[in-house]
Simulated scan of single mutants.
Amino acid sequence: MELEYTACPLCGSDRKRKAYPNFHTYQVVRCASCNFYYLYPRPTEAAMLDLYSKNDYFEGEEAGYQSYAEQEPALRATFRRLMINMKKHEITGGSLLEVGCGYGYLLDEAKHFFNFRVGTDFSPQAVEKAKTRAELVYQGGVDRVPPDRNFDCIIATQVIEHVYQPQLFLEELATHLKPGGKMVIATPNMGSFWRYIMRDRWPSFKIPEHILYFDKKSLSVLMKRIGLKNIKTLPYPHAFPLPLIASKLNVTLPSSLNKYNLWMPATTLALYGTYPGNLGS
């Protein structure tokens, strides 16, 4: 892949120091100005968008997911728990937009919590599957959503770590929120104890797809920067298929055990904020 050498995606500083240098062509560096972690160098955005648009991204070998479909029981369990937690925090009801919806498992689990559900994804294969689980699904990014269509809640889970211009991405999402609407952003938690324990073997160092690494402080800063108010933490327990966990320990288990889940705490950071309307005024 063609590579680019960039400044900090959060603050723009060129000052950085090595943090995790042992990823062959790549390393994860830490900004010396704002302490944000990011991939350096990184593939160009055009190269990665081409990867995400491939039909085999969700069922491939070299990149993406080995089999997203085999993770369905664990993903659905995760999203059911997420919806329950969102309801407890008064984030459900009305219309929902999910950016990066994959096969639509979250949208399907949201059917008892939202009246109208819309998704987007770059993969044509994913879009075809997700269309059976929501009212509307667009192929592409948030730019494919009609500009006059606004939502009570927008969620992007396991997406922002792939995004090349994170502030612009959140600003685009905010243009589709109704006044008083909620934005939920979930991403691998760089502040997790798992990262400290596992270091270079932390599974969320998914190189080169994950180019940004957020902790609670950095994600809060970004969400506040675009004008969201009352930034709060949303509990996000995550279930993983047992064979997937075993594979991270170099142990191979039969895929028939995918129906058995292991709940892992603190792997995912989720924050939500309220759109007050008239951002930037």
Rank of each mutant, 00 (worst) to 15 (best):
A239M: 05
F205L: 11
Y164K: 10
L10Q: 12
L51M: 11
Y196E: 08
F214H: 00
R117I: 13
M198T: 12
Y196H: 10
H162I: 04
L279C: 04
R144P: 00
N35S: 14
A32C: 06
P146W: 04
F122V: 05
F205V: 03
K129I: 13
L242R: 05
N250D: 14
T252G: 03
L212M: 05
V142T: 09
T268Q: 04
M183L: 15
K88N: 10
S218W: 12
V184I: 15
I91A: 14
Y105D: 10
R80H: 13
T78D: 10
P203T: 08
G191C: 07
T92K: 10
M223V: 05
G100F: 10
D121S: 09
T252Q: 14
W202Q: 08
E171Q: 15
D215R: 02
K224D: 07
D148W: 07
G191N: 06
E72H: 06
T132N: 12
K248M: 13
I231R: 09
K182Y: 09
N150E: 11
A246E: 07
Q66M: 11
V145I: 14
V251I: 15
E209V: 07
I154D: 05
M190V: 02
G100C: 07
F122Q: 13
V29H: 08
T268W: 01
I154K: 12
N22R: 10
D143T: 11
G180K: 06
Q27T: 04
N230V: 02
K18P: 00
A69P: 00
E98V: 04
V251C: 12
L219G: 03
I155D: 02
P203H: 11
R149M: 13
P237G: 12
L106A: 12
V29G: 06
I211H: 05
Y164F: 15
K206V: 10
R144L: 12
P254H: 12
T267Q: 03
E128F: 04
A130L: 06
I207V: 15
V99S: 03
P73S: 11
L96W: 03
I226V: 15
P73Y: 07
